[in-house]
Amino acid sequence: MHYTFVNADTLARLTDDIRKAASEGFGPGMLAGAPFLDEYALVPQPAVGLTGIVTGHPRIADGRRCFSTQVFHINAEQGVARTLNRWYRLGRPHGSERN
């Protein structure tokens, strides 16, 4: 049996994004169209992912709780996270006080 869990193009985009985040910071184009994840939290799955209330996701309705693929980069101060499949713009962490 042979299983391919992630294709090479997806990993190449992920690697490129992490390199840019580490060296160039975030330009406006990097997060264009990125879903917004409010009340987010890291969740221990077989690999660490994110959960939160999503807005702007291409396949999940606004206001629904989602569970992301594996997290590879997160910077809470900048309010961004990169999972296997996409960037997320982060809102408030889960359990934070609402304003």
Rank of each mutant, 00 (worst) to 15 (best):
G33F: 06
D38M: 08
A41T: 09
G91W: 08
N85Q: 13
I74A: 08
E77F: 06
T55G: 00
G33S: 04
R89S: 05
T83A: 13
A81Q: 03
A41G: 02
D62Q: 12
E97I: 10
N75L: 14
S23F: 07
A32D: 14
G91T: 10
L37F: 10
T69H: 08
W87I: 00
I18M: 05
V71T: 02
A21S: 10
A8S: 13
F72T: 08
F72R: 02
V71E: 03
G29L: 14
F72I: 07
P93R: 13
G25W: 06
Q45A: 10
N85D: 14
Q70I: 09
P35E: 00
V48E: 12
T55Q: 12
G29F: 10
G56M: 07
A61H: 03
R89N: 02
P28T: 01
A61I: 00
V80L: 14
P35R: 03
H57N: 09
S96H: 08
D16L: 10
H94N: 09
G79M: 14
Q78N: 04
K20Q: 11
R92N: 14
T51H: 00
G29N: 14
Y88H: 03
H73T: 11
P46T: 09
I18S: 01
Q70V: 12
G91E: 07
D38H: 12
K20M: 04
A22D: 15
A12V: 12
P35M: 06
R65E: 10
D9M: 08
T51V: 07
G52Q: 08
E39K: 12
G91N: 09
T51K: 06
D9A: 10
E97N: 05
L31Y: 07
H73F: 15
P93C: 01
A41D: 10
A41Y: 03
P93M: 07
G29E: 15
W87A: 01
F72H: 15
R86Y: 07
P44I: 01
I18V: 15
D16C: 06
I60E: 11
M1T: 13
E39A: 12
L50G: 05
T69E: 13
T69R: 11
F67L: 08
H73P: 03
